[in-house]
Nucleic acid binder design. Sequence first.
DNA 1: CCACATTTGTCCGTATGTATC
DNA 2: AGATACATACGGACAAATGTG
Lengths: 79, 79
Amino acid sequence: MPESASYLQIADRVIADVRSGKLKPGDQLPSVADTRATYDVSYGTVQLAYVRLEAMRVIRRQQGKGVFVNDPALWLREP
Amino acid sequence: MPESASYLQIADRVIADVRSGKLKPGDQLPSVADTRATYDVSYGTVQLAYVRLEAMRVIRRQQGKGVFVNDPALWLREP
DNA sequence: CCACATTTGTCCGTATGTATC
DNA sequence: AGATACATACGGACAAATGTG
């Protein structure tokens, strides 16, 4: 079994950290540069994870400031 | 007013086309190569749009086959 | 107001892998 | 075997917003 793609692992981890309480609504995520270092991936791979999380409304990306966790009440969910 | 990013335009267009009936559940989207040509963007930009749409469950990407529209009943939605 | 550093945003070109037909 | 199509990832470049001095 191949393990899942890096960008999916990064995205899944953020979701898991919010669900576990390690990250809370309003919290700022580590900078993209830090996240790159943590996972040893490229900038584009981190951005791919963020585009996915943003589409799900898990995070809010704010240019020049950072990336912030949304309240799970705002997340898109299954019908 | 700045126009939105290319990958968002592509994603929004797919959603609009499904809502208008131009695309129906199960339909296959044009190939990435075709979409590239239509919008005059790179492969990566099309994939960015697809990653976003996949996160929202608007589409299903099937390696080797194509990209297909999901039934809107399956789309993630606002709480 | 200006300069600068930091951080995210967008996009490109390219390479390689994997699944399907 | 070969063609087609999507999947993932890298490196690089430049833009834009923010905050600080």
